[in-house]
Each structure stands twice: as C-alpha cells, then as structure tokens.
C-alpha cells in the first residue's frame, strides 16, 4: 500500500484477541445455554415423576395436565430470553434472542391450547363452569392466563398492521406477560393436579421467585444503575441521507466491555425507568474514547423525536449488546462488508476501530444507496480509507449523469450475484462477510454469496428491526 497514512494515534494492538470471543468458545457457551434450557424444560416432569403422582387416570387427562406444565416451563423461560442478560446475549447475539422468543412463545401457546382443548373435549368435569362469579378463582385465573398469552401473541404479530404505537405495545406486552404468568402459577397451584408433592409445589414457587427476581433485575435494579450513570448529549449533527448523529458524553461510568459494532438501548429525557427506549447501533468505536455516537434515521415511531434531541439533554444507556463485531474475528485474514443505507452504522463502527488500530487486514465494502447525493458518512469513509486497506464500492440505483465516486469505485445497479462476483476478490470467499441493511437486500446478498461458495458460517448479518 502506498497510501499516505497518518501515524497510529495510540498504542492499540492491531487486533482484539480475547479467548472468550474465539469461535470455539462462543459455540461452547451457546451449547451450554441450550443444555441448560433443555434441563429447565425437563425439570418439572422429573419432579412430578420423582414424587408419588396418582396413577391410572385416562391418558387424555394426564396428557392435558402435562401439556399445561410444559407450556408453563416454556413461558417461564421467556422472561430469561427477554431480560437482556449479558451472559446469555453474548454467544447468540441480542438481536436474535427476540426472534427466538417469538418462535418459542408460539410453541408455549400451542401447548397451552392443547391443555385447554383436551380438557374441553374429553374432561368437561375438570373445567367446571365458565362464569367467573361461580367458577373457582384458580380456574378463572387459568382462563385469564390463556387470554393474556393469546393477546400477547396477537398484539405482537399484528402491531404494525393495526398501527399500535411502540411504547403502548411495550406497556401492554409487559403488563400481559406479568399478569399471564402470575395467573398461570395461581391456576397450577390452585388446581393442584400433580402438584400435591411438596417438591412440585416448591419447584413452581421457586420458579415464581426466580421470575420475580429477574423482573426486579430488569425493571428496577438495572434502571437504578443507569440512573447513577447518566449521559449528556454534547452534539447533534447531520450525516446526510436524513441521518442525525447524537454524540453522548458519560457523566458517570463509561461503557464497559464494549466491542465495535455493538448497539445499546437509548432513553432520552424520560428517565431510565421509562419503557420509551430504543436500540441503536453505536456508530463509533471504543478505541476512539469513552464518548459514544448514535446515528439515527427517523424511520418511524420515536426515532424522529430522538433525532431532534437538543444538545445538553440527559440520556440513559443500557448496553452494550450485540455480536456484529470484528473483535469476534481475530483470526480472519480480511473482511467483506455489505451495507444498505443506514445499515452502514455498525459497519462504520467496526471500520473506525480498524482505523484507530491501523489494522492491516483488507476490507472490501459494498455500500448500496438510492442516490449519490444522500450517501451518509461518505467523508468518514474517505478518511478511514486513507489509513487502512479499505476498498469501497458505492452501489447506486440511479446515479447522476457523469458521477465521479473517486477515490472509491462506483457501480450503477443493485446488490446482486453478478455485482458481488465482479467486485469481490476471489480469495475473499472464506473471509467473514458482515452485512447490515434492509431485509430484502440481505436476503438477496445471502443467496448470492451462498451461490459463490461462501460458507454459511462466514455470513453474519445484523437484524435491523427487532419488533
């Protein structure tokens, strides 16, 4: 390389090497969590069988009850999945856990419907009357729980279609989840089927206490910690393409264990206990200092309000989370990065880290945008490319007449198999491919890369919208 490089500004090592972030260590931790999940799901059944349960009932009645226990075990697990527990998010990625939570919730509600349906069809006597004024309270609690969980799923799946506001949806979700789980536990202990043994009752009471502890941690202790460590908005600047960057300065403790490319939940002006918080990528790198920058495109809900945040406003941060980081790829010989629009932000954070470290590894960035004039962070990319081995290919669908993307390359069109094959070097197939952008672009790029022989394990993407 004969590019004019500025000297390395600080004594950063060129690569982040941490045994805990090595691929085998990440896979071992993920396997450990899955094993723990299986054990947690089997525990209620083991406790039932270890006791002295009544035998001889018809299979349909026994199965109806055991399906109910299975549903409850799956639901109890949901609180751990959505509690933003860092040890749990680290191997999987905090963006994928809500996806997992969604699929698992469908299963839980399916088992719950099985429990209800089998009793309804074959054992009406167990159900009693529907009228809550005459029915035992624990039976009404069971019906309330079923209703809560059905509403939870429906309100989450249809939130956008029915135009439910994000903040109100979060309030509804939390309220229904708390009510539903409490009602379900009341139902199980009140009905008393297969819970006569002290061990079984202790298990469910223990699960309830653990659940209450988790809620206390997520909704009270963590916000209290955030309240003691506020941040201040020190700059709000235009980055092009409608993107605004908020620069925040720590007023208490800065972020710990922060890797480039991670994101954090940002709450502005409302206090750390507010449910009005959103996940945003931190678009700068830890190597640049304790200040953090969120680059926000006002796409809807609260992001327009956040983009107008005045300088001096107090903010609260929960994070960092996420695994979209070059620091998980210490052994990679180079990187392919593919960004669409505002999806550049986590990629930019990684590039900032490489620039600060003068990481010598080659990076090929394919950056797709609608128009040339509105490309965000174009100047940042030019500056970074002076310091590291970065090749940028701007992909513009409708470029202006006679456009000159120098010093970078420019291509008219969209990110597709042909474009990737033409602009990525042959020896990059085994490099990590880090992608962030709109879902259709990611799907097209993933298919194209697979067709070019890139292994699945080398394709990493960040999910944009969690809900």
């Amino acid at each position: 390389m004969d590019r004019p490089q500025t000297p390395r500004p600080a004594a950063h090592p060129a690569r982040h090497v941490d045994a805990a972030d090595a691929p085998w260590a990440v896979r071992a931790r993920a396997a450990g969590w899955v094993a723990l999940a299986v054990a947690a799901l089997l525990l209620p059944f083991a406790v039932i069988l270890a006791g002295d349960p009544p035998r001889g009932d018809p299979l349909t009645r026994n199965l109806a009850f055991t399906l109910g226990f299975g549903a409850l075990a799956l639901i109890a697990m949901q609180f751990a999945l959505t509690g933003r527990l860092k040890p749990l998010t680290r191997p999987f990625g905090a963006d994928i856990l809500p996806v997992f939570h969604r699929f698992l919730s469908w299963g839980a509600v399916a088992l719950m419907l099985g429990h209800f349906g089998m009793l309804y069809v074959w054992h009406q006597d167990d159900m009693g009357v529907l009228n809550p004024l005459r029915a035992p309270l624990h039976m009404t609690a069971g019906r309330v729980a079923l209703l809560c969980f059905l509403t939870l799923i429906a309100s989450s799946e249809l939130r956008k279609r029915v135009g439910l506001d994000y903040l109100w949806w979060r309030r509804l979700h939390l309220g229904l989840a708390l009510t539903g789980f409490a009602a379900a536990i009341w139902h199980v202990l009140g009905a008393g089927h297969l819970t006569a043994e002290p061990a079984t009752r202790a298990l469910w009471l223990g699960a309830t206490l653990a659940w209450a502890g988790l809620i206390l941690h997520t909704r009270v202790l963590r916000p209290m910690h955030q309240a003691r460590n506020p941040w201040r908005v020190v700059e709000n600047r235009d980055e092009g393409d409608g993107i605004r960057s908020l620069v925040l300065e720590p007023q208490g403790r800065p972020l710990r264990d922060w890797l480039p490319g991670q994101f954090a939940w940002l709450s502005v002006g409302q206090g750390p206990f507010s449910l009005r918080e959103h996940p945003f990528t931190i678009s700068t790198a830890p190597d640049k200092g304790p200040e953090i920058r969120f680059s926000i495109k006002p796409l809807g809900d609260d992001s327009a309000r956040l983009a107008r945040t005045p300088v001096g406003t107090t903010a609260w941060i929960d994070g960092p989370y996420g695994v979209f980081s070059i620091d998980r790829e210490a052994d990679a010989p180079g990187f392919v990065m593919i960004a669409g629009g505002v999806g550049i932000t986590p990629i930019l954070a990684n590039l900032h880290a490489m620039q600060e470290r003068r990481d010598p590894r080659p990076v090929h960035l394919i950056y797709a945008n609608d128009s040339w004039e509105e490309i965000a962070f174009r100047r940042d990319l030019e500056r970074i490319a002076r310091d590291i081995d970065l090749t940028v290919t701007h992909v513009i669908e409708n470029p202006p007449e006679g456009w000159d993307p120098a010093p970078h390359r420019g291509v008219r069109g969209r990110v597709d198999a042909d474009l990737l094959a033409r602009h990525l070097p042959q020896d990059s197939r085994d490099w990590p491919h880090m992608m962030c952008g709109p879902a259709p672009m990611l799907a097209a790029a993933r298919k194209a890369l697979r067709g070019m022989g890139v292994p699945l394990s080398a394709i990493h993407s960040e999910i944009f919208e969690m809900v």
Partner: peptide
Amino acid sequence: MRPRLALILALTLIAVTLAAAVTTALILTG
C-alpha cells in the same frame, strides 16, 4: 446466529417439551 437457526432451535426445544409431556403422561397412565 441466523433467524432460521433460531427457528430450528426453538422447534427443537418445543419438541423436547412435547416429548417429555407425552412420556410423563404415558408413565402416569401406566
């Protein structure tokens, strides 16, 4: 981890729970 892997893992855990529920019910029925 990709969404498809999350789906496969979720289905596996649901299947494990279902299998445990059926096995327990069969043992109780005798």
